[in-house]
């Protein structure tokens, strides 16, 4: 049975006293580690890369705890750090791939198959393959809306985009994916 989650408000209150910093941080990690892991993993696919990004996310959180004043919610703040870390990682990876002329892992299907951790069925493989073909930011919005079922308002706070822009981005992503499925069936 899953343990009852500690409310963010309680963690934020603990953070007000510097002597509780470590305790509050531990509660924060235990509460969000799994959610953030999947948020990152769906973007970068590889478990090892996800582990690195997740650790960096929490290390940055730890370093920034003293400056956290509770203006934003802990949830939004953590997701924003994780998202920025992920997008930076993908940007750097794209640069490295651009330099490398013969990188087989640039092809989405190869990326999924090369990752020994992929254990889905054929339809999941197809969906992930098509999602990987979307631009990084569109993919991010699609994952947050479709898989994580986040509200546009929350996604807007995390990504810094307007709700209108996010709706348009999600709409484009869905249409592209439908089109890819359709073309796949024709072939």
């Amino acid at each position: 049975m899953r343990k009852a989650e500690v409310p963010d408000k309680k963690i934020a209150n603990l953070l007000k006293n510097p002597s509780n910093k470590e305790k509050a941080f531990s509660l924060l990690v235990k509460k969000y580690q799994e959610r953030l892991y999947w948020h990152i993993r769906k973007m970068v696919i590889s478990h090892d890369d996800t582990d690195d990004i997740l650790q960096n996310t929490f290390i940055k959180t730890w370093k920034g705890l003293d400056k956290f004043r509770g203006d934003a919610s802990l949830y939004t703040w953590l997701y924003r750090i994780a998202t920025n870390e992920t997008l930076t990682f993908l940007k750097n990876k794209d640069k490295r791939n651009a330099v490398s002329l013969n990188n087989e892992n640039v092809i989405p299907e190869n990326r999924l198959r090369s990752d020994s951790g992929f254990n889905g069925n054929e339809i999941q493989l197809k969906l992930q393959k098509y999602i990987l073909m979307l631009p990084d930011k569109q993919r991010l919005v699609f994952n947050m809306k479709y898989f994580d079922e986040m509200k546009y308002e929350d996604i807007a706070k995390i990504t810094g985009n307007s709700v209108g822009a996010l709706k348009a981005s999600f709409h484009h992503a869905v249409n592209k994916l439908k089109s890819m499925f359709k073309n796949d069936e024709i072939i």
Partner: peptide, 20 residues
């Protein structure tokens, strides 16, 4: 095609990636 996402609804909460 509209049914594709409806079908995927059933499996979307189970990410197809293994964790150590």
């Amino acid at each position: 095609n509209d049914d594709i996402f409806d079908n995927l609804e059933k499996i979307k909460n189970n990410p197809p990636f293994a964790v150590p």
